[in-house]
Amino acid sequence: MIRCAVFDCDGTLVDSGGTIHRALGLAFAEHGLELPPRQQAQRVIGLSLVEAMAELAPTQDADLHGRMAQTYKDAFVTLRGQQQVEEPLYDGILPLLDALEERGWLLAVATGKSDRGLKHCLTAHGLHARFLSLQTADRHPSKPHPSMTLQALADCGAAPEHSVVIGDTGWDMRMAKAAGAHAIGVLWGYHDETELRDAGADTIAARPSDVFDQAERLVKTPA
């Protein structure tokens, strides 16, 4: 039996909220708009960019949302060039990945980041090669559509019922359920426990070590 653990990135593997908010601020200012406070703005983290802009600036037209998304990408590249991008791994993530791999889990990522952004992030932490499948917003509909999860599972050869999606937002939980996979919500990211449970989380992890125990319990290996 092949078991697959599909991770969200922002808010699950890395704490990128501060940098995302700075890039959003630059994008909104470029278009003469006021960015909502960080606590409100970070709630869209995990959505693809156009959908995130539509959530944060709902009275604006769809064409503007697309232009704002591109401005955000440009702002992020500028911040990276100025070495102002901060995406530290959450404490406990490396031991979690080690533990899952030691138990034979295959690892994947499903994220609202771009291919380029995800590669930069994972490479900076020496993690790029550890994930068998990397699915991003460049090639899929926004979460909670199940497309990213289904492709990750196909790449790994894993059935949904033998897989878990690990994420910090309701978008991740709904994506998991739509794909037929188990959903583990984590509390160190950007949505709270109530939102995660309402979105269908099978279980809630307060720390990365909890994820390992919960994944092993949700998808048991044959005796």
Rank of each mutant, 00 (worst) to 15 (best):
A137V: 07
A176Q: 04
A62Q: 12
A152K: 06
A110P: 05
L94W: 00
A158T: 12
D91A: 11
D98Q: 10
D74F: 15
L132D: 04
Q82I: 06
D138N: 07
D168S: 08
C121M: 12
A129G: 10
R130D: 03
R103G: 02
L89N: 00
D61M: 06
M175E: 11
L100F: 00
Y90C: 05
E86T: 03
E102C: 03
R80F: 08
G81K: 11
S133E: 01
E161L: 14
T71Q: 06
P146F: 15
K177V: 08
A176S: 03
M175S: 09
S147N: 13
L79Y: 12
L97Q: 06
I166W: 13
D91E: 07
K113W: 15
L150D: 09
A178K: 01
L127F: 08
A181N: 00
A181G: 01
P160G: 14
P58V: 06
D91V: 13
A99T: 12
E87Q: 09
L118M: 11
T169Y: 14
H145S: 01
E101Q: 14
L127W: 11
K177E: 05
A152C: 07
G180P: 01
K73L: 12
T149I: 15
A108W: 14
G92M: 08
A137K: 03
D98A: 05
P88D: 01
A159M: 13
Q60F: 12
T123D: 15
Y90V: 02
L150N: 10
F131G: 02
R174H: 05
V165G: 07
H162T: 14
A178G: 04
R139W: 08
L106S: 10
M148Q: 14
E102Y: 00
A129Q: 13
D172P: 07
G92T: 01
A129R: 14
Y72D: 01
G167H: 13
F76R: 02
D138S: 07
S163K: 14
P88C: 02
V109C: 11
H128E: 08
G81W: 11
H125N: 08
Q83H: 15
W105Q: 05
Y72E: 00
A129M: 05
F131L: 00
V85F: 12
K73E: 09
E161K: 11
S133C: 01
L106A: 11
I166P: 11
G66Q: 05
A69N: 09
E87S: 04
T78C: 03
Q82G: 03
H120Q: 09
D61T: 07
I166C: 08
G157E: 07
S163I: 11
W171G: 00
P58T: 09
D63Y: 13
D74G: 04
A69S: 14
G81L: 12
H120A: 10
P88E: 01
E102P: 03
R130V: 02
P141S: 02
Q135I: 02
T169A: 08
A110G: 10
E161G: 13
H182M: 10
G112P: 15
G180Y: 12
E101K: 09
G112N: 07
H65S: 01
R67G: 01
K113Q: 07
L106M: 09
M175W: 15
H162N: 15
C121D: 06
Y72T: 01
H65P: 02
G117W: 14
V77N: 04
H182P: 00
M148R: 08
D74L: 15
D168R: 06
H125R: 10
A152L: 06
